[in-house]
């Protein structure tokens, strides 16, 4: 391989979150977590909500992702995430509040409520963000 690094782009509908060269990318595929190194086969997969790790030469970047797609073509990884946040932008106390609010809401709403699913999704996302933040702090 001529290139030493893979180019990683994480984009959400609202903005481009990350674009940089990396050594390895680990992402939560719907069929299980997968890692991409240089020279990976072209590959297209759905992502489930979870943690993305972008390993660069000097540090690991942690991102919380709310599901989406990943495309790998010739040393380029494009992650089309519905939501994505860098761990360093997350705030523990805000997340805690978010989780509590969602739990409270779920308790109030019945399973039949049309909004139930929406709040369930929110709770899941907030919990993932918490986990990502914890992992990031542990590995810093």
């Amino acid at each position: 391989m001529a290139e030493e690094y893979i180019q990683v782009d994480v984009v959400t509908p609202e903005k481009a979150v990350l674009s940089r060269k990396a050594v390895e990318v680990v992402a939560p595929g719907s069929q299980g977590e997968f890692g991409v190194l240089i020279g990976h086969t072209p590959f297209l997969t759905t992502l489930k909500p979870g943690q993305i790790i972008v390993r660069t030469e000097d540090r690991d970047i942690y991102l919380a992702c709310g599901g989406g797609f990943a495309e790998v073509i010739s040393d380029r990884v494009i992650i089309l995430a519905e939501t994505a946040e860098m761990a360093e932008d997350l705030k523990a106390d805000e997340l805690k509040e978010e989780v509590e609010q969602a739990r409270e809401k779920l308790r109030q709403l019945g399973k039949e409520d049309p909004d139930y699913e929406k709040w369930e999704k929110r709770l899941l996302r907030a919990e993932i963000k918490q986990r990502v933040l914890e992992n990031w702090e542990k590995n810093r």
Partner: peptide, 27 residues
């Protein structure tokens, strides 16, 4: 024209992508 490896399968991917493209259009 890249030959991809699709995971899980083309159909399931399509099923996830079509609603997404509608949302992107709406956005």
């Amino acid at each position: 024209n890249v030959e991809y490896l699709y995971e899980p399968s083309e159909d399931i991917l399509l099923e996830a992508l079509l609603p997404l493209s509608l949302k992107v259009f709406m956005y």
